[in-house]
Design a protein around this nucleic acid. Sequence first.
DNA 1: TTTCGTCATGCAATCGTTTGCATAAATCAA
DNA 2: TTGATTTATGCAAACGATTGCATGACGAAA
Lengths: 349, 349
Amino acid sequence: MEKRKLLFQEKRTGTVTIIDVAREANVSPSTVSRVLNNAGTISPATVNSVYKAVEKLGYEPNMLARSFRKKETRTILILTPNMTNPYYSNILSGISDMSREMSYSSFICNTSAGTEQVKETLEMLPKHRADGAILLASEKGETWIRDFSEAYPIVQCSEFDPEIPVPHVSIDNYKAAVEAVRYLIRLGHRKIGTISSVNHYLSTQLRLRGYQDALTEAGIKPETRLIGYASKDYNYASGCAIAEKLLSMQDRPTAIFCISDVLAMGAINTAKKLGLRVPQDISIIGFDDVEQTAMFSPQLTTIAQPCYALGQKSAELLFMKLARGENIPMETVLPYEMVLRESTGPRPV
Amino acid sequence: MEKRKLLFQEKRTGTVTIIDVAREANVSPSTVSRVLNNAGTISPATVNSVYKAVEKLGYEPNMLARSFRKKETRTILILTPNMTNPYYSNILSGISDMSREMSYSSFICNTSAGTEQVKETLEMLPKHRADGAILLASEKGETWIRDFSEAYPIVQCSEFDPEIPVPHVSIDNYKAAVEAVRYLIRLGHRKIGTISSVNHYLSTQLRLRGYQDALTEAGIKPETRLIGYASKDYNYASGCAIAEKLLSMQDRPTAIFCISDVLAMGAINTAKKLGLRVPQDISIIGFDDVEQTAMFSPQLTTIAQPCYALGQKSAELLFMKLARGENIPMETVLPYEMVLRESTGPRPV
DNA sequence: TTTCGTCATGCAATCGTTTGCATAAATCAA
DNA sequence: TTGATTTATGCAAACGATTGCATGACGAAA
């Protein structure tokens, strides 16, 4: 038993508990609890006096105790590779807002250090620190995700592995890429390059395939020399580097499809550096439509992803699963939109 | 008492508890607890068998129970006005990483809806959902923060109210502004404008004052007509609008000091639109040095804030307070750096 | 050999809620 | 009027850990 010197007062902790409220309202703790959770049947008079007591004592329920007893944290876990990246931060924002709406809190965890960190962070689920999780970016082939998903509610947002049966929400990356490249073809371009990435995201793979298929479908033979691979994290510098390679070859492409806006900006700035005008000499199309591009000139033609909505939807699905049990769709596809701006134009003659 | 049909097994919940481990290791739960927390003195043999049991049963401590008992959540609360803003997201990143290092988790909460939402979110502290909080942006005059700060560990990052005694970390905004404007003066500029904001952040106020004092000190009389106020949230569009006003007046400024990079980019793009070359016709200097500006051309001359470090430091202070009680400094000032790039140049003749 | 620490461990209370069951009072049906 | 419901509330047992105290064993000092 713990040391406590009780002299005249029966109870003297700084914080006021449900028992204090009960005493004040002349009812039992159970009744207070029921009032506060409006569960069971309680007479209006009792309800009233309980609330009055709560008010008077400034009682705040101890969520730790509550969660402990109810075995529910009302907290979700969000794993993001990099919250500094505007693409992800917009998704996070969508998740956050939806969480608040459902009166959930969210642990947002950077997992930039890779798979080990992801696993470690997911341990929060068995440790009862969160009720479910949203994964923002898992590469293909991470089968251990399946194990977690079998034991806990998990939703994958934007990236997923089709082999692993975890509910996910994303756009149709393949179709989007096809549409982007078709558009370039319609502008008359024939030598079309792409800046992809060496990462193992499904989206990357699909966009590359879309690019190739769109070319083939138009009777253009995809050339490996026109495919560049940026670094794993798509960063600006690697976009510049790859663009430099593509644009300085003889018989260079007249248009480039980039799998992200950041890469596209790198490509554009590199083109300018090489003395090429965009879009007169070279057309460049991006992907994502992060808001930062609004300040860029020329303004980017790009595939707009509904980042915020992706986040919202993922959260919504997770909450459905948490509330109603099983039945949420395995695959949710949100619409993208191709937005035409200034970085693309007809093939130079 | 709760319904539970125990037939042959003494215990049959899905999750394995400390009691199961104790049974498996032939010790008492207290001993297991002591091993896991390496508290008290335990024989190596016992330690061993406990770990073996933990391993065998795949035991994961129930953090909810632990937190409840220990009255400590090992979670902090972070209030941010907008996690999508790169300035904040970098701070968040710093806080996050430091948290992980100290094995804390963090609730990141958007409080874009304003004061009411901030208050409501801070209720997590009395409700025992978090041990302390970091506030990323509080406007001047929010005295209720004092009340929370008296009852709970709170640190303010980047913005604060000097009237309210809450520990805070930031850069010296006044000095930075002075330095920026002095630099413009040194380049020969005399008609120097500024784009400030109508918000009530202390930093905004200090930067404006720094601007004015630097002019005065050089014998230049500050002119109200050269001061523009962007919208409360500093957004790009309002930067453009104010810049347009400043640049289209007759006797226009030849240099503009902007209190954020986003505003500076708005100003630059507007200048270009008006046919002015940057920096040949007009010099523009920003503030913050968010990484997005690297893709902008001309590259921004700006005051670089150590966002990530600001976050780290705030977290560090909070953890010190949580661990060791009171003694953390009221004011922590981190160094900024003026970085000279392409958007500023000598006064046009 | 006796006495006294120190070491290693167990006992049982406790943290603040929620909740299954019991019960008393009130309402209703017959 | 009486038995059957319903309504309103209380009792006390959980939930799964931590921890103050008690205790038994062992080794060292006297």
